[in-house]
Design a protein around this nucleic acid. Structure first.
Lengths: 170, 170
DNA sequence: TTGGAAAGTCAACAAGACTGACATAAAATG
DNA sequence: CATTTTATGTCAGTCTTGTTGACTTTCCAA
């Protein structure tokens, strides 16, 4: 596991400088630092409401797919149903989320944001989008394309599919 | 907060399609899903040792900067000293990290990985690098450049400085 | 109709973050 | 030399968010 740079020589003849262990390490650390920045603004807002990141995630994906079921949400969030349930319970009790029993299948609960829920969602996503927009603008469209491309390679293929499947509420 | 696309018209005359709310939302979700993929492999390994992500992070940055002090580490990790201390204590007790009293300033503790610590670091970073390498290779060098560029814009400027300052141990 | 699977809920526990208070030692400062 | 500041460590307690286990309700298929 030493240096993996073969600048302009050997086998394929390609310059693989971007695959050296040092480059990989920088990519890894960049992910760590960037994720912290990415969550910083919403985290700050959430403190005012005694909610956490878990609440933010639930709100985000309910807003994205109104009427989604608990099971759908579990799949996307990748947590246990008990964990999600605790979060949903508080959001429902606080009147940010509405849970409607399914008509076809009465075991299912369909989830919707209330007006109050939408308000918080907006506050959170505004802050997160502002940072993202600034970063995208500073980096430029080509960088953004590369950013997306690499992230899609890193994530689980199931999530990649999900990400690209929905244009709106599905 | 509606659509922000102005394809080929108006003011600057640039195509800002990559700054639409939909594009931003996809970027946000990509970050979320990718970060989960990013931590999945190390998390799996750590289960075998009864350690968590916090231990991984400490090990990573001690390995990166051998001899770093507790205060340095606190700065990079962005947690409280109580939180870090809990982690370091177990790593030192388990013989993965060595803590040496500073020679110049005896208040400082300089941290080093032991042989055992290096072994675990290697196992963890091998797994994480493998995924990163595959993603980088699949996406290509230009995408990687864009990926890095956007991440650096998202993170706190202090971290960006740190990321680019160290070539080795400083 | 009965038994199993699926969806959701409640309870209890653990990891890892936090705050606050306090202790020790060493360095820096007047 | 006395005082203050810095670096580190520790104890206690809380909070969020993850976990497992046990349970109810509902659906479906044999």
């Amino acid at each position: 596991m030493q240096d993996r740079a073969f600048p302009g020589k050997g086998g394929g003849g390609e310059n693989l400088l971007f695959l050296t262990d040092d480059q990989l390490r920088k990519g890894i650390e960049a992910m760590f630092f960037a994720y912290r920045g990415f969550t910083a603004d919403p985290d700050r807002i959430l403190e005012n409401y005694a909610y956490g990141r878990a609440h933010h995630r639930a709100i985000h994906f309910i807003n994205r797919s109104p009427g989604t079921t608990v099971n759908n949400l579990l799949d996307i969030l990748g947590v246990t149903k008990q964990s999600l349930n605790r979060v949903l319970r508080t959001l429902i009790n606080d009147g940010l989320v509405e849970s409607r029993v399914g008509t076809r299948d009465k075991r299912e609960r369909h989830l919707y944001l209330t007006e109050k829920g939408r308000a918080l969602e907006h506050e959170l996503s505004d802050a997160q989008r502002a940072r993202m927009r600034a970063a995208f603008r500073a980096a430029g469209p080509e960088a953004v394309q590369g950013f997306r491309k690499v992230l899609e390679e890193i994530m689980d293929p199931r999530m990649r599919e999900f990400l690209n499947s929905m244009t709106d509420g599905g």
